[in-house]
Amino acid sequence: MATTHTRAAARLTLAPSVILLLAWMAIPLAMTLYFSTLRYNLLMPGMESYVGVENYGWFLTDPAFKAAIVNTLTLVLGVLAITLIGGTALALLLDQPMWGQGIVRLLVIAPFFVMPTVSALVWKNMLMHPVNGLFAWIAQSLGMEPVDWFAELPLFSIIVIVAWGWLPFATLIILTALQSLDSEQREAAEMDGAGPVSVFAYITLPHLARALTVVVLIETIFLLSVFAEILVTTNGGPGTATTNLAFLIYAQALLQYDIGGASAGGVIAVILANIVAVFLIRMVGKNLES
C-alpha cells in the first residue's frame, strides 16, 4: 500500500544520497569537460583561452598517450590473467578438506588488506631490490644472475605487485561461489565415471561463470586506475614504461600544470571506463531481477 505518506517519505530519505552523488558526479565532470576545451596552465594564470578540441588532438597524438593505453591494457589483462587462473586454482584447493583450513584461508586473503603504498614499497625494496632484496639472494644462491626487476621488467614487476593484492579477492569470490555448488550433482557425475577434468569443465566451471564475470568486471574497474603502486615504485618510468592512463593524467595536471591537456585525458579515461561499466551494470541488473 503505497500511500502518499510513504511516497513523500521515500523521496525525502532518498534525496540526500541522490543529490550528493549527482553533485559529486555532474559538477566535476562538467568542469573537466569545460577545462578540456581550454588552453589552461596553472603556471600562467589568467591566460586561459578557448581552443576547441585542440587538447584532444594533442593528447591523442602524444606518444606517451599511446604508451599509456598499451600499459593500461597490459596491466589490466596481466593482473586479470594471474588472479583468475591463480584464484580458481587456489579456491579449488581451499575447498578441499584439510587441517587448519581456517588459518590457511586467513593467510591467503591477507594481502587484500595491505594498503597499496605498503605493498609496493615492501615488494620493491625488500623483495625485488637487485642487491639486497630477497629475490636477488635466492637467485645468487641458485647460481643465477639477480634480476634488476624495476629496470629490466618494470611493468611486469608492477603487475606482480598489483596481482598479489587482488589474488585474494578473486580467490574469496570464487571460493564463495564454489561452496554454493550442489555436491550431489558432482557426486552423481563422478558415479557415472566422469574424471576430475570433465567434472571441472562441465559442472564446476559453468557454475563459476557468474562469479568469474563479477571478478573480471570489478577488478577491471579498479585496475583501470591503478595509481599508488606506480607512484611509489617507478614514477611511471623508466621513460613511459610504466605510465598508465591514470598516472599520465596525474603527471599532466599536477607535475606539468597543464589543466587543459589533463582534462582531455580525463574525459578519455571516463569514456573508456564507461565502456566497461555498461557490461557490469547489465550483469548486476540481471542479478537484481533474479
Partner: peptide, 27 residues
C-alpha cells in the same frame, strides 16, 4: 517502499562508482 524508480536509482548509483577518479582529479 520500493517504487518503479528504485531499480534505476540503484543502478545509477552503481554507475557513479565506475567513474575513474582521474576523470575528476583536476576539478
Amino acid at each position: 517502499s520500493p517504487t518503479k524508480h528504485t531499480k534505476n536509482i540503484l543502478m545509477w548509483m552503481l554507475s557513479t562508482k565506475m567513474m575513474p577518479a582521474v576523470g575528476v582529479l583536476v576539478p
